[in-house]
């Protein structure tokens, strides 16, 4: 495995009275795309939000490129180079598409080459550039949410279920966009329920169950092993094709 960019060691998270993460241990290598799979309620979203500091880990350690970010406030974690695309997308609907991007570029105007690259990935955004983002369709909002995360170079993208609720044609567009992001050298931790999309994109895979990492390995191994798929996920890739 290549150099580890993000490491979680025994991370526990409580939300109110509920104990959601029960000691998550995993490592995200630099470069490539790691998929986090698991049933509803397994703790995938909580893991991303805990990494981002939106919910504080009650114990354990989160290291990002050697830096302990377990107790760091969310803005500091973002400034360290982690971008987050939540499941809800959380785009600012009253702001225009342009304003959403401008706000995401903390250090100033977006570099024109980067802007061209982003709009090449998501051409629909150019069309709605000066419209309030609330006017976009679900798929376009997802594109904007991802474009906002890459408005500036980041070292790690956390993306929560980007294909959820999207039409098949839009899912294929999204898969192409993530392939392009991978090709550009981005490191991505992707939560995904759609095993077809996950298997098409993932280099590495983590499977969560009941707030723990139940499996960690190469995606190609999981794809090649229907028995393992059935055991970990209760399904097989064949069912998705």
């Amino acid at each position: 495995m290549s150099e580890v960019l993000l490491q979680l060691e025994g991370v526990h998270t409580h939300i109110g009275p509920y104990h959601i993460l029960h000691g998550v241990d995993c490592a995200i290598p630099a470069g490539g795309l790691t998929v986090l799979l698991g049933r509803n309620g397994a703790g995938k979203t909580t893991t991303l939000r805990t990494i981002m500091g939106l919910w504080q880990a009650s114990s354990g350690r989160i290291r990002f490129d050697g830096l302990d970010i377990s107790k760091a406030p969310t803005p500091d974690i973002a400034r360290a180079g982690i971008a987050y695309v939540p499941e809800s997308m959380a785009i600012f609907t009253d702001l225009t598409v342009r304003e959403n991007i401008v706000l995401a570029a903390r250090s100033g105007p977006v570099d024109s080459g980067r802007l061209d690259w982003m709009l090449g990935l998501f051409p629909a955004l150019k069309r709605f550039w000066n419209l309030p983002a609330g006017n976009l369709s679900g798929g376009q909002k997802q594109m904007l949410a991802i474009a906002r995360a890459i408005a500036e170079p980041r070292r790690l993208l956390l993306v929560d279920e980007p294909t959820k609720g999207l039409a098949p044609v839009m899912v294929r567009s999204m898969i192409e966009a993530f392939r392009a992001l991978k090709a550009a050298g981005e490191t991505i931790l992707l939560v995904e329920q759609n095993f077809y999309a996950a298997s098409a994109l993932g280099d590495h895979v983590l499977v969560m169950d009941d707030g723990r990492i139940a499996h960690s390995g190469a995606m190609s191994d999981l794809v090649a092993d229907p028995v393992l798929q059935q055991r970990l996920l209760g399904l097989s890739l064949d069912a998705h094709q």
């Binding site: 939540p86 706000l103 995401a104 903390r106």
Partner: peptide
């Protein structure tokens, strides 16, 4: 609209 997302973009 969404203070949490503003924080996640790196603003205090």
């Amino acid at each position: 609209e969404n203070p949490e997302m503003v924080e996640a973009l790196g603003y205090r």
